[in-house]
Amino acid sequence: NNDALSPAIRRLLAEHNLDASAIKGTGVGGRLTREDVEKHLAKA
């Protein structure tokens, strides 16, 4: 659900052409954090 993404996370996802649903969020309520996105990028 993109409504739960902060603007910074949306921008980071867009810059790397990532789909938020492909990344498991570890923030409050399962929200994506910058660390989640960076860890996903490091794996790729």
Results as ranks from 00 to 15, higher is better:
Asn1Ala: 14
Asn1Arg: 03
Asn1Glu: 14
Asn1Asp: 15
Asn2Tyr: 06
Asn2Pro: 13
Asp3Phe: 04
Asp3His: 12
Asp3Leu: 09
Ala4Tyr: 15
Ser6Gln: 06
Ser6Ile: 05
Ser6Gly: 08
Ser6Leu: 07
Pro7Asp: 15
Pro7Leu: 12
Pro7Ser: 10
Ala8Asn: 07
Ala8Ile: 09
Ala8Phe: 08
Ile9Val: 11
Ile9Asp: 05
Ile9His: 03
Arg10Pro: 02
Arg11Gln: 15
Arg11Gly: 09
Arg11Val: 14
Arg11Phe: 14
Arg11Ile: 12
Leu12Asp: 02
Leu13Phe: 05
Leu13Ser: 00
Ala14His: 08
Ala14Gln: 12
Ala14Met: 11
Glu15Gly: 05
Glu15Leu: 15
His16Asn: 07
His16Asp: 00
Asn17Lys: 09
Asn17Val: 04
Leu18Glu: 02
Leu18Ser: 02
Asp19Gly: 04
Asp19Ser: 12
Asp19Pro: 08
Asp19Thr: 11
Asp19Met: 09
Ala20Gly: 06
Ala20His: 06
Ser21Ala: 12
Ser21His: 09
Ser21Lys: 11
Ser21Leu: 07
Ala22Phe: 08
Ile23Glu: 00
Ile23His: 00
Ile23Arg: 00
Lys24Gly: 05
Gly25Asn: 02
Thr26Ala: 03
Thr26Asp: 02
Gly27Ile: 02
Gly27Tyr: 01
Gly27Lys: 01
Gly27Asp: 03
Gly27Arg: 01
Gly29Val: 02
Gly29Asn: 12
Gly29Lys: 06
Gly29Ser: 06
Gly30Val: 01
Gly30Tyr: 02
Gly30Ile: 02
Arg31Leu: 11
Arg31Phe: 05
Arg31Met: 13
Leu32Arg: 02
Leu32Trp: 04
Thr33Gly: 01
Thr33Phe: 01
Arg34Ser: 07
Arg34Asn: 07
Arg34Thr: 10
Arg34Pro: 08
Glu35Asp: 10
Glu35Trp: 10
Asp36Pro: 00
Asp36Phe: 00
Asp36Leu: 01
Asp36Arg: 00
Glu38Trp: 13
Lys39Cys: 12
Lys39Gln: 12
Lys39Tyr: 10
Ala42Asp: 07
Ala42Pro: 04
Lys43Gln: 14
Ala44Ser: 12
Ala44Gln: 14
